[in-house]
Amino acid sequence: MTSTIFSWLAVGILLLAVPTLTVVRDWRWMLGLLAAIYLAVFLLVLQHWPLAMSVVKLVTGWMGTAALGMTLLNRSLDEDGRRSFFVEGSPFRLFGAGMVILLVVSATPRIEAVIPGIGQSVLVGGLALVGVGLFHLGMTSDVLRVVIVLLIILAGFEILYAAVETSILVAALLSAVTLGLALTGSYLILQSNPEVEEEEGLL
C-alpha cells in the first residue's frame, strides 16, 4: 500500500515537473526540476528494483544535474532581470505537454496489456517523460535544453526498462550513459556562446 502511494506520488511529481520544465527560462529552476524528476524516477524504479540498485539512478541523476549546474555557475551568465520567468510560447508548450500526458494516460491500459505486471504508475511515469521529452525536443535547439530533454527521455526509458531488465551490468552502463550525457552537455555548454545559447529554440 505504501509502495503504491509512493509510486503515484512520484507520478504526480513527474506530471508537474516535466511540463513546467518545458516553460521555465531560468536554468536554476530547470536543474531543480530535473533533480525532482530524478527523485521521482528513483521512487518508480524502486517498484521493481531493490533499494541499493534504485539509489544508483538517483545518485547518477543528481550527479549529472550537479555537473550541469557547476558548468552553468562557472559560465557567469549575464543575467537579465527584466526577462520574464517563462519562455515565449509557454501556453502552447503547456498545451502540447498536456495533450501528450492525456494521450499517455489514455493509452496506458492498452500498453499494460502488452507489458503485463509493469504497473500503471510506472507506465504513466515512464511514458510521460519520454513523450513530453520528445515533444519538447522537437521545439528547441538550445544546448542546455536539448541535453536536459535527452536526460529526461533516457530517465523515462530507464523507468520502463527497469521493470523488464534487472541486470547489474545494464544498470551500471545506463548510469554511465546518463553521466556521460550530462558531462557531454557540460562540455557543449562550455563551448557555447552565452548570447546565442540564451536564444530560445523555434518559438
Binding site: V130, L137, S141, V143, V146, L150, I153, L154, F157, L160, Y161, E165, V177, L181, T184, L188, Q191, S192, N193, V196
Partner: peptide, 25 residues
C-alpha cells in the same frame, strides 16, 4: 575546444541517443 557546437553535432547526439532506448526495448 573554442568552437561553438553546431546544429549537426547536436543532431548527431540526439539521434544516437534516441537509438539506444528503441533498440534495448
Amino acid at each position: 575546444a573554442g568552437q561553438m557546437p553546431g546544429r549537426g553535432a547536436l543532431r548527431f547526439l540526439v539521434h544516437q541517443t534516441l537509438a539506444m532506448p528503441f533498440i534495448l526495448f
